[in-house]
Amino acid sequence: MATASWNGAVLAKADTFETVDGNVYFPPDALVAEHFAPSTHTSVCPWKGTAVYRNVVVDGKVNANAAWVYETPKDAVANIKGHWAFWKGVEVKRT
């Protein structure tokens, strides 16, 4: 089991998940959709591909670009396609 939370709200919860580079990647159906808003930010990892970001929103507070996904990852990490990871103060716990 893994959970991601920020500002007192659970953002994602899953029994199954992927781990790459120490980051937990949650399947898309694990996310609580109401806590995510669009972002135009992207970044490129030489071995994973292009990451697309979302803002995390809880009680009107915005954590800009705190969630990311590889929609079309490179073959080496095909297992995280469509899975979401977090940073910028989002607490991820594995139990």
Rank of each mutant, 00 (worst) to 15 (best):
W68D: 01
N79T: 12
N79M: 15
P73C: 08
A85N: 09
N79C: 09
A78L: 14
D75S: 15
A85E: 09
D59F: 04
A78V: 14
N63S: 11
W84S: 01
V62S: 05
K81S: 15
A66H: 04
T72G: 01
E71W: 11
K61I: 06
A76W: 05
N79R: 14
Y70L: 08
I80G: 00
A64E: 14
V77K: 08
G60N: 09
W84I: 10
W68M: 04
K74T: 05
N63V: 06
A85W: 10
Y70G: 02
I80P: 00
G60H: 09
G60L: 10
V62T: 15
V69G: 00
A66W: 02
D59W: 06
V77N: 12
W84M: 03
K74N: 15
V57N: 05
F86V: 08
K81Y: 11
A66E: 03
G60A: 10
N63F: 02
G82N: 13
D59R: 07
I80N: 01
H83I: 07
W84T: 08
K74W: 06
W68S: 01
A76D: 15
A66M: 02
G60C: 09
N79F: 06
G60E: 08
D75T: 15
D75P: 15
P73T: 10
V77E: 10
I80W: 06
G82A: 12
